[in-house]
């Protein structure tokens, strides 16, 4: 990466609404989720302000920004987890597959089947490893026979890179695994229902560096099948795993850019200051 060689963008040359500032040529650009004029209030406090962003399929998009900037809130808008908070009010469009996910007609259960989620703290169900994976597909009638279910559990665990570590103890409690393994179990649980999108809310912030590296490799692999949107506090992580990065500040998307450009040559002063560690 050559910092000097890259042309410096100016704030004036803004891209189209919702589009990244610079294109990443290696990335896929099929639209997965389109967000337009999204506003969110917690009671009287506005947490998200006029967000516009296009999230592309089979990409890793990282959401970065200082604490309290709304990146986790935004992430939870994508599978309507904010519905669980009574005081939240949402305006604007979050569109997936041509449908407004916030529409009253949209069934949030159906939405969450297509948009899975991995949380900051590994939260496996207090059940066996097997049951952690098999529960959701069975609930969604994705499997009918036991053999099918076994197969699906194995596939999900393999995809999450956990199979070799747990294949001999599938019926031990999920919480008996180490933190990193638990988080991969949660990823396996999310991909077992074959979603289109996986949301990750700081998936490695509770993990040690080695587990973190494993998860990052996993994200890299998983993006061939899934659209991944991840919130991270760790800028190196965003730089390593993300195709696109959106920088949030005070509830706004300040800059949405190809990750390489974002970290070498950000278009905005605020993003540059954050990335270079002036604040955060």
């Amino acid at each position: 990466m050559n910092m000097q060689a890259a042309p410096r963008h100016t704030v004036g040359t803004a891209p189209q609404v919702g589009q990244p500032h610079t294109r990443n040529d290696q990335a896929c650009h099929d639209l997965s989720i389109r967000v337009r004029d999204l506003n969110l209030w917690y009671g009287q406090t506005q947490a998200l302000k006029n967000l516009n962003i296009d999230l592309f399929e089979k990409n890793v998009t990282a959401l970065i920004g200082p604490s309290g900037c709304g990146k986790s809130t935004f992430l939870r808008c994508l599978n309507r987890m904010n519905d669980l908070i009574p005081s939240v009010r949402i305006e604007g469009l979050v569109e997936m597959d041509g449908r407004d996910v916030n529409a009253t007609k949209m069934d949030e259960v159906a939405l969450r089947r297509r948009v899975g989620m991995v949380f900051q703290k590994p939260n496996p169900f207090p059940k066996s490893i097997y049951e952690n994976i098999a529960y959701a597909p069975r609930m969604h009638d994705l499997v009918s026979r036991k053999a099918e279910q076994d197969e699906l559990v194995e596939k999900a665990l393999r995809d999450a890179g956990l199979w070799n570590e747990v294949k001999d103890k599938l019926h031990e409690p999920g919480t008996s695994l180490s933190g990193g393994q638990q988080q991969r179990l949660c990823i396996a649980r999310a991909i077992a229902v074959q979603p289109d999108v996986i949301l990750m809310d700081e998936p490695t912030s509770a993990l040690d560096p080695i587990s973190t590296a494993t998860i990052e490799d996993l994200m890299d692999k998983l993006k061939q099948q899934f659209t991944i949107v991840t919130v991270t506090h760790n800028m190196q992580q965003a730089a390593r795993v993300a195709d696109y990065t959106a920088f949030f500040h005070l509830g706004e998307i300040v800059e949405y850019n190809d990750t390489k450009t974002m970290f070498s040559n950000p278009a905005t002063k605020k993003a540059e200051d954050y990335i270079t560690g002036r604040y955060g």
Binding site: N79, M81, L84, V109, A110, R112, R113, G116, M117, V118, F119, K121, N123, P124, F125, P126, Y135, A136, M139, H140, C186, R189, A190, V193
Partner: peptide, 27 residues
């Protein structure tokens, strides 16, 4: 019962009743 369990269950697409019946009540 920790909320993380409820979030996990909602996250895999449980309805409210499924969250309660399969995860919260047993705990």
């Amino acid at each position: 019962v920790p909320d993380s369990i409820r979030h996990a269950a909602f996250g895999v697409g449980c309805s409210r009743w499924q969250v309660v019946r399969d995860h919260v009540l047993p705990l």
